[in-house]
Design a protein around this nucleic acid. Structure first.
Lengths: 293, 293
DNA sequence: CTTCATCCTTCGGAAAATCCGAAGGATGAA
DNA sequence: TTCATCCTTCGGATTTTCCGAAGGATGAAG
């Protein structure tokens, strides 16, 4: 079969080294073998892949395309090797899990850590994906479990509520707002603000609503670690807004006040979904049991 | 080298067929060859991959993991073959492009169609990704061009403005709001609404701001094609909100009124980014020239 | 213009991997 | 007990792959 993994590895080695000669050496092949392999690939593709010159070889556009895919394939193959070798050393299973961003803030990390501690012989492959990609992946059998927002299309999947993503305000200790009945986002947004770095989904949600209220947030500082938010607020730099789980953790470690935002947009239902509970492997079901426990 | 493509194909064939015997036949191999390959894979992995029984063979958890990766690898390899065969038939280049959702509404599809028509010998691989994934992919050389929101991290990339994603209101012909100076989203959100299907990013943005205004949208109907929105509005079902490009196209084909929403959140700047303009292949630069032209 | 170094290709035989048919268990149903 | 089905093992044949040696091609150096 043409385009075996040796072919792909060799081709990348040639591009990196700049010549077939040097690439062959890197791939532990004799020069004639490398040359023959390249010729074979070019015959199969029906187009030149390398431009040979006095100084060496560079890729044609077709060669670039080949290299692009070769990198992806070899990377995937490397990941596979790694996983399988762990099975050889006693691993019992691999839970494949996709989650939207929100679920990370609702205790997923905690559940995950607890599960991994209790089941040292089960690995978890967790990836963050938009909700709308998760349902098709479940249907196609690509993953075992999905955590997604319930506004998406979950037809034909088995689901149960995982949690709610509710935002909380974080204030310096003793701040008057903490004991003000009826306080809401508008009150918080009017104060100096400790923000997360742009691109963060929660940040964007908050920003959006602040602008909608005609209250553009007054950022004193922007940080990219949740813990840093707590320290900044504690120091009196400003106030902030975090998902419940993060806010409570921050409240444990630093001297701050928190309260739940009453606005409807601060609350989103998250569901855990599987294609077929019966068909789920044992280890995946164990993981499911630990979710939200 | 262990785990060549024949191995992977064979393994999937065995799982589908339910036995090594039948899988070997599907993979055009004699039974002993298949058996030897499976044994070789198991030795390399250091763990059983199949449970043999009287009735056939089923995968162990390790085997499931292998199958998972095998599917991905073979799929990628198939895509590579397809691309390369097109080069054999005269293809000159392949532009790899990731875009966030918003850019689809700002004429990207039009630019794309125009480019493909003018350059029949260049293909475009367009994928929709969140903005925050695009910059790293550019830096890593995974893609040629990225279209993303400028709130993200574009440090070290060459960028220029591509367009703005501005939302417009869509109203039935002759609706009074169309000629009301100072009309805004609050006026529109108070009317019966023609919505897009949940999960759509624009839909979520609109929903968010409606709730923030204390005006939960009154959906008469939800559709998933832009054209259908125009027909619904024309029929007097309700009003809607669409990106400028879509709104104008709808206005051409159906009898509706449109006006731009004045709110700040309805306006987002989009940029086109590359890692290094100099190093860009010729065909990718041509594509770049056509963007926003 | 000649020489030389570098890079690639071609050729032929050796080594290795792969394949297949035949024969030999193992296992559960009849 | 017999039989059918599925898997494994064995030995030889075939095919693939590899490498060293020899042979262009090309541009730089003398």
């Amino acid at each position: 079969m043409r385009f075996d993994l040796v072919d792909l590895k060799l081709f990348l080695a040639i591009l990196e080294a700049g010549s077939i000669t040097a690439g062959a050496a890197r791939a532990n092949l004799a020069l004639p073998s490398a040359s023959a392999r390249v010729r074979g690939m070019e015959e199969t593709a029906g187009t030149p892949l390398l431009v040979r010159s006095r100084a060496g070889a560079v890729a044609t556009p077709a060669g670039e395309a080949l290299a692009h895919h070769a990198r992806l394939i070899l990377q995937q193959s490397e990941r596979m090797r790694g996983e399988l070798s762990r099975y050889g050393r006693g691993l019992k299973g691999h839970v494949r899990l996709w989650s939207n961003t929100a679920a990370f803030s609702v205790g997923l990390i905690g559940d995950l850590a607890r599960f991994l501690a209790r089941h040292p012989d089960v690995d978890v492959d967790l990836q963050e994906r938009p909700s709308r990609e998760i349902a098709p992946a479940l249907r196609g059998g690509l993953i075992h479990i999905g955590l997604l927002s319930d506004v998406g299309d979950t037809l034909g999947l088995e689901t149960r509520t995982y949690g709610e993503d509710v935002l909380m305000a974080v204030l310096p200790k003793g701040h008057r707002l903490a004991n003000t009945p009826g306080a809401g986002f508008a009150d918080v947004a009017a104060l100096p603000f400790v923000g997360l770095t742009p691109g963060n989904a929660i940040h964007q949600l908050i920003e959006t609503h602040a602008v909608a209220l005609g209250l553009p947030l007054k950022y004193r500082v922007r940080v990219n670690r949740i813990e840093a938010v707590g320290e900044m607020v504690q120091a009196g730099v400003g106030v902030s807004v975090l998902p419940t789980a993060d806010a409570l953790r921050v409240a444990e470690r630093t001297q701050v006040e928190v309260f739940t935002l009453p606005e409807a947009w601060a609350r989103r239902r998250l569901v855990v979904a599987v294609r077929d509970l019966q068909a789920l492997p044992e280890f995946a079901r164990q993981f499911l049991d630990g979710l939200g426990g």
